[in-house]
Write a protein that binds this DNA or RNA. Sequence first.
DNA 1: AAATATTTTTAGGCAAGCCTAAAAATATTT
DNA 2: AAATATTTTTAGGCTTGCCTAAAAATATTT
Lengths: 223, 223
Amino acid sequence: MEVLTQAEENYLKAIFKLTESDAVKAASTNAIAAALGTAAASVTDMLKRLAAKNLLHYEKHRGVALTERGNELATNLVRRHRLWETFLVEKLGFGWDGVHDIAEHLEHVQSEELVERLDIFLGRPKFDPHGDPIPDAKGRMASRKQVQLSSLLPNEKAVVVGVLESQAAFLQYLNRVQLTLGTNLLVQERFEYDGSMRVLINEREEITISQKVCDNLFVQKTK
Amino acid sequence: MEVLTQAEENYLKAIFKLTESDAVKAASTNAIAAALGTAAASVTDMLKRLAAKNLLHYEKHRGVALTERGNELATNLVRRHRLWETFLVEKLGFGWDGVHDIAEHLEHVQSEELVERLDIFLGRPKFDPHGDPIPDAKGRMASRKQVQLSSLLPNEKAVVVGVLESQAAFLQYLNRVQLTLGTNLLVQERFEYDGSMRVLINEREEITISQKVCDNLFVQKTK
DNA sequence: AAATATTTTTAGGCAAGCCTAAAAATATTT
DNA sequence: AAATATTTTTAGGCTTGCCTAAAAATATTT
């Protein structure tokens, strides 16, 4: 089992995330640079090194995709990250939003046994505090726990993860009212009368959403 | 609060340990190199850098000692290390001997809040699984929990940490029978008749120790 | 005290990761 | 299709931490 540096691991994870939505099959140099906050030239540098280690497929000007091995390592990294986030929230009492940066460091500690014992200690959780699925030691994970927005009760928090029907008009509407992928929601109230909901968006703005929209929006509960 | 690299932290910790026994006031280049497994030239390199950051006093060919600030940072590092060791043993069920290397990595995660919460989660322990005292956030720590070997009961484990009377003849005897500082003991049996004990040394050799020696040996219980 | 041994420092180099500026390749406009 | 804009790569440099080999300083023997 090869050992990667923290920098290498961070590149793998960034590429993994960028190519996660199956629509996209390759990550561009610029996108990776943006994700990591480094110069594009540094990315090219590293891509060559990772390609030499057979962790990704690289062809000049073509963008990159992880190899099987690269995917394996990246998935394991995600596993570590999400287990630590779970630990920080469940055991140490951190808020679910203040936890990412610390997990970003903890995830780099290399010890299979540590991760395995942590997993057991936490009761082999399937999802982390953000609702994201935690891969098991073999890289398998549950699919996202997504539900329709209309199924939420007042005071529940969620994040937008997808739509049921993806007609252009609907997506345009979502963009218009800022209900984009990743938007955080807090349900304030639900009106029985017409099934509409008042929702706080990204801890800032409050809007009212019709039942039709609530039915078509997939969200994932968060804490 | 300045942020140190892992390498810098490792140097601080090594120097801290080397100068811990108050007898020694300066750590030599070679001793540091040996402790870290690096070349002496690399140590000289780093000593200059750490001196420039006011973390230690460095004069060519004179050896080094930590500054107040250096000591503070090193103590905090020890705190982090021992808290993580405690976590690994108490919560994750690691054996107390398989824990050092992992803690070596965890200790470098920089987050005051993380350490504070971990401390609380563990119930603010005063000693780690090796019996070493855990400094509090201000750097204060209890003195070692040392007891006379003669006070131990069969099946208790301990490590040699000092002597009561340090006559040369006694120390020579200890060296002779391998009862040196850091030796691990497991009490097998105690004979009421003459107060002598049968003890397993470093999980290998079994010897019998007279009451006089047992009274003069300070040990620290371990798990 | 001179000779020898040991320790420490200097000098010069190397890999990993980052940078900026310029060149080359690819995409988008017109 | 030519012109322009954007993306990606190359080239050259920097810092951190490490190395080896040789020089300098200090310690120990004789």
